[in-house]
């Protein structure tokens, strides 16, 4: 896993961030799908994290869960999932 660059605070140690959940399939409708279904793609995971030990911003993170490489980090809500 590599470091996460918080869009506000800059690169910080991974220990400062907390993962919340993997997002459901794009376009998933209904509370059930949003609550229970998870996308299991070993090459790309789209997730919500919070920078709890910093600015507390909620982040939308695109990551490769097989290598730990972080592709993109943006503030959640700026791009709706």
């Amino acid at each position: 896993m590599t470091r996460i660059a918080c869009p506000f605070c800059g690169p910080r140690e991974l220990r400062e961030f907390e993962f919340h959940k993997t997002l459901p399939t794009p376009g998933a409708q209904g509370a059930f799908a949003r609550t229970y279904e998870r996308v299991a793609d070993p090459a790309l995971s789209v997730e919500h994290w919070q920078h709890v030990a910093g600015c507390r911003a909620w982040l939308l993170v695109h990551r490769n869960p097989s290598t730990g490489v972080v592709f993109a980090v943006e503030l959640a809500g700026e791009v709706m999932p």
């Binding site: 800059g10 400062e16 910093g54």
Partner: peptide
């Protein structure tokens, strides 16, 4: 130094 690099303040733990 890294945390305050090019900024006046930072939220930290």
């Amino acid at each position: 130094e890294a945390v305050l690099d090019r900024r006046g303040c930072a939220a930290v733990t």
